[in-house]
């Protein structure tokens, strides 16, 4: 296989190049994991200190909508895995369809998320940029802290989604029928994007659990 693959001049062979790329991505995701660990650590400390207030604030969020949204994101994880599988089987045309499906699901997720944000803005639950915070519960100060974290966490996650969608768009454009060496590279790019996409799902699972589900 190695005679049909483009190898950068500093690598010995295709195997070394492929494994180096994968390892780099795993390490990058370890870094991302620690980034979010810092955020969740801070949230966890406050959840411990102000349990009752945070649980009450959590009940002000739209759980049904967020649950549907979580299901949509998990489904996009499936379509992404299917896209990867198709590329590995050499079915580029099929893979591009799965990419379109993944992008569509990701976009729907972001639209629903945006609708939720707008809803909270309208209800006066968006304590950013000096906007009024109009909260009817019994711990307004700590609830404000909760909503600060809500926007920081969901915002940071949405930012990661946008990066992922951008990468998918590039993959879609690149994914025209190609000669051998480029196809190998395409498989690697697909694999790396797929890992990133699944990681963004993992992050969302914890965002969802921390913010929406811990309500008692």
């Amino acid at each position: 296989m190695s005679d049909t693959v483009t190898i950068a001049s500093h690598f010995e062979d295709a195997e070394q190049q492929r494994e180096a790329g994968l390892m780099g991505m795993w390490l990058f995701l370890a870094t991302e994991l620690m980034l979010f660990a810092g955020l969740f650590g801070a949230f966890g400390i406050y959840r411990g200190l102000h349990g009752e207030a945070f649980a009450e604030a959590a009940r002000h969020l739209d759980l049904p909508l967020a649950s549907i949204n979580t299901a949509i994101l998990l489904t996009s994880g499936l379509t992404m895995a299917l896209a990867e599988r198709s590329v590995q089987a050499g079915l580029i045309v099929v893979a591009r369809r799965w990419i379109v499906a993944t992008v569509a699901l990701g976009a729907v997720f972001l639209v629903i998320k945006g609708y939720e944000w707008h809803h909270e803005f309208a209800e006066g639950l968006m304590p950013l940029l000096g906007l009024p915070f109009d909260y009817d519960g019994s711990h307004p100060a700590q609830a404000e802290l909760f909503f600060d974290f809500y926007f920081a966490m969901t915002g940071l996650h949405a930012l990661h989604m946008l990066v992922g969608l951008g990468a998918l768009a590039v993959l879609w454009v690149l994914g025209r029928p190609q000669p051998g060496p480029r196809a190998d590279r395409y498989i690697r790019q697909m694999r790396i994007t797929g890992m990133y996409w699944a990681f963004v799902d993992v992050v969302w699972v914890f965002v969802f659990t921390s913010l929406y589900l811990l309500r008692s």
Binding site: L22, A30, A37, G194, M195, V205
Partner: peptide, 26 residues
């Protein structure tokens, strides 16, 4: 998600060690 969608199940042993390490640090 990590085992199947990220395919840690079929990753090289050193990658699995890395994943464990990251978990340890969290």
């Amino acid at each position: 998600l990590v085992a199947v969608f990220m395919d840690l199940l079929h990753a090289a042993p050193v990658i699995r060690v890395f994943a464990l390490g990251a978990l340890l640090w969290v």
